[in-house]
């Protein structure tokens, strides 16, 4: 990992904040989020549903919901995105950043052919003629494992299976050889057997194109052999960040511990960890101190103050009482 950490980051997010206006009142959805993704590196963005992962991703590509305010800095390959004109920023999508959406069925156009959608992207960013773009599109479909690629160019998304749809989505995202891929739970909508195939394809594309990747998931274990680092989000905050291996085996934040425990257990040690009780607090109702406090087994009066993200062992943790790696865990959870 040392060689990776010395290269310049492809994506450098600093103090990202997203605020929505709900019933005329500003409501924070993402606060103070900072992380980097370096060339060739895959970073997992983990957290329960509703923690602000998708919002973070959409802020990065400049497509937050209507009426959202985005603060902080987002640099792509050393270029500040937040000060770019709308038009210049738009051009980076598809060319430098590829985005893989969760639901390929609704995220691909229902009445344009697969080929037309691929060609639109290719011809927007690359100087290609009609025929060249079509040939390139067929190559892409072939590359992502779609049989009879040339014939498939003329098919519509409703004619394909779920796995094939997501392959098309991946082809679209990598079509112009971007530097960064953001994949937002790309396998959540798929059957379990298909999930593994799509994940394998993403792995291949990543090493083949030397992509930096931000992989959003609520299940860290699935991507443990795929991602280098993990960023754990809870209620709009990053609560823990570090190498995937250490986060999986020795999480420091109580939320991360619960999250890992929520994965079906494989060994005796893990079984002791229970699911986290309660729910992510709704927007606008976050506790003023540690946002995890109402659900945390270790919470005390110190936790009424909002903790900062501090380096801890190999990671960074936002917790007043982080779980120590060396000490064998004895406290009772839940």
């Amino acid at each position: 990992m040392t060689n990776i950490s010395q290269t310049n980051p492809v994506l450098d997010v600093k103090n990202l904040a997203v605020t929505l206006t709900i019933y005329g009142r500003p409501v924070p959805v993402v606060t103070n989020v900072s992380f980097q993704v370096r060339a060739g590196e895959a970073v997992a963005l983990v957290g329960e549903s509703g923690c602000g992962k998708t919002m973070t991703a959409r802020a990065i590509i400049g497509l937050p919901p209507d009426g959202a305010r985005v603060g902080g800095s987002i640099q792509l390959e050393g270029r500040e995105l937040t000060t770019l004109s709308k038009k210049d920023r738009r051009k980076l999508g598809g060319s430098r950043i590829g985005f893989i959406f969760q639901e390929p069925m609704t995220s691909l156009h229902p009445t344009l052919t697969v080929g037309a959608q691929l060609c639109d992207t290719l011809r927007t960013h690359l100087d290609l003629g009609r025929k060249e773009a079509r040939d390139r599109a067929a190559q892409l479909l072939d590359r992502v494992g779609i049989p009879r690629a040339t014939a498939m160019l003329d098919s519509y998304i409703h004619q394909l299976s779920g796995g094939m749809r997501q392959r098309v989505m991946i082809a679209l995202a990598v079509s112009c050889k971007p530097a960064l891929i953001i994949a937002d739970e790309p396998t959540t909508a798929l059957d379990v057997t298909i999930q593994a195939q799509v994940l394998d394809l993403l792995k291949e594309m990543r090493s083949e194109l030397g992509l930096a990747m931000l992989y959003i998931t609520h299940d860290l274990e699935v991507v443990s052999d795929f991602c280098d680092r993990a960023v754990v989000m809870y209620a709009g905050d990053i609560v823990e960040e570090g190498p995937v291996a250490s986060i999986l085996t020795a999480p420091h934040h109580h939320y991360t511990r619960g999250l890992i425990g929520a994965i079906p257990a494989h060994d005796e040690d893990r079984k002791r960890l229970t699911l986290i009780k309660g729910q992510v607090p709704p927007l606008g109702a976050w506790p003023a101190g540690c946002r995890f406090a109402p659900r945390c087994p270790r919470a005390d009066e110190v936790c009424l103050k909002h903790p900062a993200l501090e380096p801890f062992e190999e990671s960074a943790v936002r917790c007043w009482h982080p779980v120590e790696l060396k000490k064998k865990e004895t406290s009772t959870l839940g």
Binding site: I61, L63, R90, K91, L92, G93, G94, S95, I97, F99, F101, E103, T106, S107, L108, H109, P110, L112, D120, T121, T124, H125, L172
Partner: peptide
């Protein structure tokens, strides 16, 4: 509001194409 319109924008297509075609 459809996700495929967001995809078209995320793919960097010009707004005229996003509206006129997608």
């Amino acid at each position: 509001d459809e996700p495929y319109v967001t995809t078209a924008r995320a793919q960097g297509l010009p707004e005229a194409t996003v509206i006129g075609r997608y």
